[in-house]
């Protein structure tokens, strides 16, 4: 039984002197939602295009369902739904006609498939509208409808929630979770909305400057994300002295609050409250702040914003 539905073996893509992706090896297991994170130009779309056989790797190989990913392997694409970057549809054709095209190209016998996906993606009121007259959000829904019309076992989605409103993002997230949990669909999803990915991905890969710098389960994220205790007081200098003298690792942050990184304090912030009250400098704020995925990502990629 194949467990790694999507697998790459040291794939690289070089354009003249630019290394878009370098020696990337990743694997996505069945039923997993794999969040693929990276800054603009990190190599996310290049990787997705290599997975879909749109571009050939300079070296290495990508596999889907243990078969080499290639444009020639047309049988492979029966099981794969994809959305790459901004979705575009035939502007002169209606939503229904655009979807009918994909029903035919995927050899779907069920003629109701178009109507079903229109209802599923809530496009009913736009069904007879030409694609060129759709809003950005509805164009995105149409793009997703094209990717989902054939009930694929594997979904490869590049920024699928672009242009959607918060309700739309929630709705798509729930739908993807349902597909992964209840139908065992394997989902590979790239996004720059890191908070969004952390809410539903089961595993995360971080790509930076064309290299996969980290892969982690989202359950590990809590352990890896740093925590800190933020402290404020009316006399911040006095508070600093009290805490430093007690041997805590205290720093001032940009908001003129004090930050303590010691884990025993983070787990028991009441000890700090007691200490400061007894010293005559009661705290006006005590807050345990946990690094979110965004901050963790920025720290991991060496960008600003991470907890020091």
């Amino acid at each position: 039984m194949i467990t790694d539905i999507i697998r790459t073996e040291k794939i690289s893509k070089h354009y003249k002197d630019v290394c878009a992706v370098t020696d990337m090896s990743l694997n996505v297991r069945k039923g997993e939602i794999y969040g693929f994170l990276g800054l603009n130009g990190a190599g996310k779309t290049t990787t997705i295009r290599m997975l879909l056989g749109m571009i050939k790797p300079t070296s290495g190989t990508a596999y889907i369902n243990d078969k080499k990913s290639s444009s020639e392997n047309t049988e492979l694409w029966r099981q794969v739904g994809s959305l790459v970057e901004v979705p575009y549809s035939y502007p002169e054709l209606t939503v229904q006609e655009n979807l009918e095209i994909f029903r035919r190209l995927h050899f779907i016998k069920n003629k109701n498939a178009v109507e079903n996906i229109i209802d599923k993606l809530q496009l009913r009121q736009y069904a007879t509208r030409k694609a060129k007259n759709l809003s950005l959000g509805n164009n995105q829904r149409l793009g997703l409808a094209k990717a989902l019309i054939h009930n694929p076992e594997i979904l490869i989605l590049d920024e699928p929630t672009n242009g959607l409103d918060p309700a739309g993002i929630y709705e798509i997230r729930e739908m993807l979770c349902d597909m992964a949990i209840n139908r065992g669909v394997t989902i590979f999803i790239s996004s720059h909305i890191l908070g969004e990915i952390s809410k539903f991905a089961t595993r995360i890969g971080i790509i930076h400057q064309g290299k996969l710098i980290q892969e982690l389960d989202t359950s590990q994220l809590e352990i890896l994300c740093k925590k800190r205790l933020l402290v404020n007081a009316h006399d911040i200098e006095m508070a600093y002295s009290i805490l430093s003298e007690k041997g805590y690792d205290v720093e001032r942050n940009a908001e003129a609050h004090l930050e303590i990184m010691n884990s025993e304090v983070i787990n028991n912030p009441d000890t700090i409250a007691t200490l400061m009250v007894n010293a005559g400098c009661p705290p006006t704020m005590l807050k345990v702040e946990e690094e979110d995925l965004e901050t963790y990502f920025l720290r991991t990629t060496g960008m600003k914003g991470g907890v020091r």
Binding site: M54, T74, W77, E85, S89, Y90, L105
Partner: peptide, 15 residues
């Protein structure tokens, strides 16, 4: 020019 080509590259119909 309409950027629709990318949707017909990874489908069961050969190029």
């Amino acid at each position: 020019s309409d950027h629709t080509v990318k949707d017909i590259l990874a489908i069961p119909v050969s190029r």
